[in-house]
């Protein structure tokens, strides 16, 4: 029997594979590829530096209430950090976000699986999913306050209710699109109904679930900040609204940047989880034509 050969890259890491051809082959293509790769770091860096420089120059000629310069924002950030305001605000923000978002993940995946697997559940729940997907949920903040007061529960509720819908919809889509052949495999090899869900439909939905989680993360961040601004005046949202009301633009922007940082870090954590826990999805969304 002839030894089978492998068509795609034999290495487990797609990163290593993509680096392979450029370093291994000393073809005429190598220099331009290297240049391209260096440009993937240099180009965005250069772009940001130029942006900051322009901002600094323009900001220096404008009323600091209207626009603070980057240097002043950094100074304000340092001040918030050393004065002990940023730490607790950051912790509150992370607590609200993590609780609401994790709750949305658990509930969203569970409901999404049910909707994807059962046409009856789907038909029953679809009107609500469509309604809430179409409603500007921020408008419900006053109602949330009436129900849950002005504390942690209310903020978590707002975070949760903004995030949960895209997780439900994406999970349901992924489960529903399980290839019929894989369901047949489950039947032929006598998997229980439960194992068809956990072992076939759910793993099949993982790429969709992560797409939903990424969208939901952005929405959860919005919910968290708005809740902190409008409900409790605490955390990063609280800093933003307080310094906004005081016309301290540099401090306001420092708090905003911290909120973005939370988003970037959370998105990276999500991506790392995907790569470590679900390696078969690796590289699926890297395609670019």
């Amino acid at each position: 029997m002839a030894r089978p050969t492998i068509q795609e890259s034999g290495t487990r890491s797609s990163d290593a594979a993509s680096a392979g051809p450029a370093t291994a082959g000393s073809t005429g293509l190598a220099p331009s590829r290297n240049l391209l790769r260096r440009a993937t770091i240099a180009l965005p860096l250069l772009s940001v530096l130029i942006f900051l420089a322009v901002w600094q120059i323009v900001g220096g000629h404008i009323d600091p209430i209207l626009l603070a310069t980057p240097v002043n924002v950094v100074k304000a950030f340092w001040d918030l950090l050393t004065s002990g305001q940023l730490g607790p605000a950051f912790a509150t923000a992370m607590g609200d976000l993590a609780t609401g978002y994790l709750l949305a993940t658990v509930v969203g995946v569970a409901i999404g699986v049910l909707m994807g697997r059962s046409p009856i559940v789907e038909r029953v729940l679809n009107p609500y999913v469509n309604f809430f997907q179409a409603t500007p949920l921020i408008a419900l903040v006053p109602l949330v306050v009436i129900w849950f007061g002005v504390g942690f529960e209310a903020r978590v509720t707002v975070t949760f209710m903004l995030a949960v819908w895209s997780i439900i919809i994406n999970t349901a889509t992924g489960v529903k699109e399980t290839p019929p052949a894989l369901i047949d495999v489950g039947r032929v090899y006598k998997l229980s109904r439960w194992r068809v869900i956990t072992g076939v439909a759910l793993p099949n939905a993982v790429p969709n679930i992560f797409a939903g989680l990424r969208i939901a993360l952005g929405k959860a961040l919005i919910g968290m900040v708005i809740a902190q601004m409008e409900i409790s005046v605490t955390g990063l949202g609280g800093l933003i609204i307080n310094y906004g009301n005081a016309f301290k633009t540099a401090y306001l922007l420092a708090a905003v940047c911290t909120a973005s940082l939370v988003g970037v870090v959370a998105a990276s954590v999500l991506e790392i989880i995907r790569r470590l826990a679900f390696p078969w999805t690796k590289g699926e969304d890297l395609g670019r034509w």
């Binding site: 495999v185 032929v188 793993p203």
Partner: peptide
Amino acid sequence: LGFVFQDAALMPW
């Protein structure tokens, strides 16, 4: 029963 499907139908994960 053993069943071989048209496109192998392996679980990608």
